[in-house]
Simulated scan of single mutants.
Amino acid sequence: MTITQDELNEGGRTAFLATKATFLDAMAQLCDAAGADLKALSYALSLDARIGPMDIDHDAYDTADYHAFMAQLEAGGIPAGPLDFFRLMDHTATA
């Protein structure tokens, strides 16, 4: 694999934020279906130190950076499993 530690650090942060945003998108749909408050859920989740703050602002990461990281991984020969996971977390992708 041809990716540096610094590139993994930066891309990993972006990918983690994308994962959180995708999770919050799914939870927002559940909250809508259940008549629950996403802000209240976000606050309740943030009380767990293992989770930390849950920013419901979906612009918390740069989608261009995320897509660039994914392209770099594809070009660098990353194993299919992690790459498939990152594709699933790309809530900006169209079907």
Rank of each mutant, 00 (worst) to 15 (best):
T2N: 14
T4G: 11
Q5I: 12
Q5M: 13
Q5Y: 14
Q5C: 06
Q5S: 13
D6C: 02
N9R: 11
E10M: 15
G11P: 04
G11W: 02
F16S: 14
F16Q: 12
L17D: 02
A18P: 02
A18V: 03
A18Y: 00
T19C: 11
T19N: 06
T22L: 05
T22P: 00
T22E: 10
T22Q: 06
F23T: 08
F23M: 15
L24D: 02
L24E: 00
D25S: 09
A26V: 13
A26Y: 13
A28C: 06
Q29C: 07
Q29Y: 09
C31T: 05
C31P: 02
C31D: 01
A33L: 13
A33R: 10
G35C: 10
G35P: 11
G35E: 11
A36R: 14
D37W: 02
D37N: 15
L38F: 02
L38A: 08
A40F: 03
S42H: 06
S42P: 05
Y43K: 11
A44P: 01
A44F: 03
A44I: 05
L45M: 14
L45E: 04
L45R: 07
S46N: 03
L47I: 09
L47K: 12
L47G: 09
A49E: 13
A49W: 01
R50L: 10
I51S: 09
I51K: 05
G52P: 01
G52T: 10
G52K: 06
P53I: 05
P53C: 10
P53W: 08
M54L: 10
M54P: 03
D55C: 06
I56D: 05
I56N: 08
D57I: 06
H58Y: 12
D59A: 09
A60P: 00
A60L: 12
A60G: 15
A60W: 03
Y61K: 01
Y61E: 04
D62V: 05
D62P: 04
D62C: 08
T63K: 14
A64P: 02
A68P: 01
F69R: 00
F69P: 03
F69T: 10
F69Y: 15
F69H: 01
M70D: 10
M70E: 13
Q72Y: 08
L73E: 13
E74R: 15
E74F: 08
A75N: 12
G77T: 08
I78C: 12
I78M: 15
P79G: 07
A80G: 11
A80W: 03
A80N: 12
G81C: 10
L83A: 13
L83D: 00
L83N: 05
F85H: 08
M89Q: 14
D90R: 06
H91E: 08
H91Q: 09
T92R: 10
A93P: 03
A93W: 12
T94S: 14
A95G: 07
